[in-house]
Design a protein around this nucleic acid. Sequence first.
DNA 1: AGTTTGATACCGACCGTCGGTTTGTATAGT
DNA 2: ACTATACAAACCGACGGTCGGTATCAAACT
Lengths: 219, 219
Amino acid sequence: MARNKYPEETVNLILNTAARLFMEKGFDRTSLQDIIDETKLSKGAIYHHFTSKEDIFDKICQRIGAENSERLAAVRDDKSLNGLEKLRQTFRSSMLHPNQERITEIIPCLLDNPRLLAIHVRMQFDDVVPNFIAPIIKEGIADGSIKAENPDQLAEAIMILSDVWLNPAVRPVSKEDTRRRCEVFRSITRSLGLDFFDDDVIQAYVDYSDAVSKNQSNQ
Amino acid sequence: MARNKYPEETVNLILNTAARLFMEKGFDRTSLQDIIDETKLSKGAIYHHFTSKEDIFDKICQRIGAENSERLAAVRDDKSLNGLEKLRQTFRSSMLHPNQERITEIIPCLLDNPRLLAIHVRMQFDDVVPNFIAPIIKEGIADGSIKAENPDQLAEAIMILSDVWLNPAVRPVSKEDTRRRCEVFRSITRSLGLDFFDDDVIQAYVDYSDAVSKNQSNQ
DNA sequence: AGTTTGATACCGACCGTCGGTTTGTATAGT
DNA sequence: ACTATACAAACCGACGGTCGGTATCAAACT
């Protein structure tokens, strides 16, 4: 084979293949040889498009982050909702958007994939909280739909609980445990005057955790 | 060098050296050669006492876990305290015990050390919550000092927030941010009817975060 | 008491695989 | 025809891990 007319296809092939392998086996346990074997490309081809294995990983994370941000921004910038409604809608859309399913099918357990876990947590702290959740809470405070002090820290707490603790991909538990976790989370948020965690979102978490655990037993 | 009469000393030398290096540079970025250089031992010596680099890491984690469990068990089994008081004392002792300081001096940021982060989180889920925090909360419910449903999940939420979110070693922030985080955490726990997070414990968190950030700027 | 024996502590050369580099080559665009 | 690009493939040092060998001990035996 020689020069390709559409190098973007090669880039995407590498990105898609590596993303799947990283999620399946983890970053460390995925070798360049694995990527070479599955893409039927050469090492030179990969290093022509990327500067390192790390670079491939970063690009994958950027892509996921961009998809995420797009979804979150749509809610944040929706002028028909007040702050509290935006918070509610944020959870709703994050539990219902289709990408989630794809990840579910592949990732066994984020705790077995420390690199991805760290990136995930870091993304919450560095992007999701400051650019989306905190602004929404501040807006809610301004429009009177939310009553709270320390919106930045409140946003962090909510995201840590919902996206790390409640997230079945981080550490899968039974449907029943997931439901109890959601109940505790709801009682926490309600006691803070934030009633955004609805029954159908809880049901989505439970279903999600069920899908994850079923997928795990298949592997 | 020849045969050592007290091989435990060699094992501890390897364990201590590796622990420091893993915390300083992370597991992946610490090579066996680094450990060999610092211990002045040979590769054979290390593989005589351990089956793999991973095994060294596991043994280190076991040692830390055992120290932790000892402290936690002392509080849990203290018959002079009721459930709520045990919860309060657990936080008090964890913020004041000396090992914490040592770790602070070495670990830059757990998010840069994904492996340690994952182990840390897993330890909370698999050991700290089921063996210590949840039993204490259940005891509190039984003796009337705590009113709560779903004690297992409540224990998880408390530990995730206090040991991952509030933990300055996970992602260092300013003293002021730490204080605000503590305020939010206290308002969460209080609104759940759990008033165990005292001013002096908050101050310990703030001082701890200050120590971590000062240490970071030195590096 | 001296010798043998077997287990343990340790050494260092060696192996395959890893991430990454370099050099070479065919082709698409100009 | 020329050049920049898209790849291939040989190659490199460092890595984690293995293995045969050696030194040193305590216990058993003579």
